[in-house]
Every structure is written in C-alpha cells, then in structure tokens.
C-alpha cells in the first residue's frame, strides 16, 4: 500500500439514470472488494443532497469533514477521508454537506478528484440519480463508467439516456452491470433476458448480480456483503466485478445456476424432471 505506483488512478463513475437500481450498493461492495484485492480505493459520494454511501458502509457516525471543507482549505484531505475500520485500503469521501446544496460545480469535482487520485488506485464516484446537474457534476471528473440497471423497462430506458450522455462526453470504456436478476423469471421469459438488455444497450457486461435478500440484510447492518464474504450469490458477483475491473478474465455467472436454497433447488429439479410447471 505504500508502494508508489506511476499508473494513474482509475476514475470510475457509477451511474444508472433511474434511482433505486443499486448504484450505491454496487459502489460500497466494489469499494470493499477492490480494497481487499490490495487496491487503494476511495469511494466518493457525489450525491451530497441525499447521501447514503456512508450508511451502507457503516461509516455514518464518523464523517466530520467533506470535500467541501477540503476545497475551502479549512481541512486537509487526510482529515476528510474516512478510513474503513476493517478495510484500511478503503476510504470514503462525502462530496458535501446536505445543507449546502449550491456549492459543487464540475470544476470543484475535477479538483477534488484530482487530489484524491494522487493517492489512490481506484476512485469510484457514486452518481446521483437523474441526468441533470447532479449527474453533470459527478461525471465531470470521470474517465470511465459503469452503468448499472435492472431488467425492467424503466431502468433500461433511463440507462440508455445516461449511456448517450456518457458517449457524448467521451467517457470510455462504459461497461454494464445487470442487477437484481431473477433467474426463474428469466427462464420463463417473464423478465427481460440478459441478452435482451445487452442487445438493447450495446454495452459489454462486466457483471451480473442475482436478486439476493442478503443485500437487504447487509444494508441493515452497514456491512457490505463483500466484507464478510458469506458466499451469497450477490457477494460473489460483486467480487467478480472487482476482479474483472482489474483485468482478470472471469467468465460471467450463469444466472440459472445461481446458488439457491435447498428447497428451491429441489423444486427446480422436480420441475425439470416432470416438466409439470
């Protein structure tokens, strides 16, 4: 971690257009997973009006300063970076205080990200929902992007808008994460398939995350799934995304083979052998 690397930091925007599809969860889990792999990682909550990344990481009580104070030079960057307790390679930087909605401009974002990038291998920017000013600020410093969507018409449509904006900004590469995949519904064609979504959005898939109740449990606790690696389907998916981002060649998970409970597997077997339902 002390080794000085000459490689510039990877600055990745995590965005979706639509709210509630899993941007912040992905940012938190990727942050932990990358840090575990030895990457010095900073996650930046660009949604300072409605910030939540601190809550998902269990760091909500440890925020004293934000990027705002760093830029105003009322504190040093080290003071504003909140180090994760169990994963010292990971630090959180909130963009601003929810009470100060007006300060952040694209130039502010570029300045703060440039400062952070000097001491990091990965900078993950958690983008606010929407395609207005919040998005423009968050995207101002991004070199590459991950668009996250779910197999639902509204989420895919909004993702398409965001991809169009990223393309005009010259952000590249832009990769796709498909979240909340329900293998059973996909198998019965009652949900957009993986190929349907990649065909429509024409982006390479960097991750496939199955719908997983453990995500809710981990959010309740403020401990991202990748922290305790309990082997749930989503935890594995997030870890694999982190490794693919580092250039490792890991085949995409087959949603139909996602780890399920004994009962579900038994039912599946009965369904397959009898062909009844």
């Amino acid at each position: 971690m002390d080794a000085v690397t000459s490689d510039p930091a990877r600055i990745i925007l995590i965005c979706s257009g639509k709210g509630g599809v899993g941007k912040t969860t992905l940012t938190a889990n990727l942050g932990i997973a990358l840090a575990r792999l030895g990457e010095r990682t900073v996650v930046l909550d660009a949604d300072f009006g409605l910030r939540n990344l601190d809550l998902l990481l269990g760091l909500e009580n440890r925020i004293v300063y934000t990027a705002q104070e760093v830029l105003a030079e009322t504190c040093r960057l080290e003071q504003a970076l909140v180090k994760h307790k169990q994963e010292p390679n990971l630090a959180l930087l909130p963009a601003g205080n929810p009470r100060m909605l007006e300060w952040l401009t694209p130039e502010d974002m570029q300045r703060i990200v440039a400062m952070v990038a000097e001491r990091a291998d990965f900078v993950l920017i958690d983008c606010p929902a929407g395609i207005e000013d919040g998005f423009k600020n968050a995207a101002a410093a991004a070199r590459e992007a991950i668009v996250i969507t779910t197999p639902e018409v509204s989420a895919v449509r909004d993702a398409d808008r965001v991809i169009g904006l990223l393309n005009t900004r010259g952000v590249a590469p832009v990769q796709l994460v498909l979240n909340r995949v329900r293998p059973k519904m996909m198998a019965s064609q009652e949900m957009l398939g993986v190929d349907d979504v990649t065909d429509i959005l024409a982006l390479p898939l960097v991750g496939l995350v199955v719908e997983d109740e453990q995500v809710i449990v981990s959010t309740n606790r403020g401990e991202p799934l990748t922290l305790n690696g309990n082997g749930s389907g989503a935890a594995l998916a997030y870890q694999n995304i982190a490794r693919r981002l580092r250039g490792e060649e890991i085949p995409l998970e087959d949603p139909s083979k996602a780890r399920r409970g004994l009962r579900a597997r038994l039912m599946n077997k009965i369904r397959k052998t009898t062909g009844l339902f």
């Binding site: 639902e152 018409v153 449509r157 064609q189 957009l192 398939g193 349907d196 429509i200």
Partner: peptide, 18 residues
C-alpha cells in the same frame, strides 16, 4: 411472454428517445 413484450416496447421507445 411479458419479457418479449418488454423488449419490443423498449426497442420502440428507445428508437424514439434516441
């Protein structure tokens, strides 16, 4: 199946959006 309908509807609406 509704998944197929979703794809067809999306393709149409995105062609207009784009």
């Amino acid at each position: 199946p509704s998944g197929t309908m979703a794809k067809e509807r999306l393709q149409l609406v995105l062609a207009h959006d784009r």
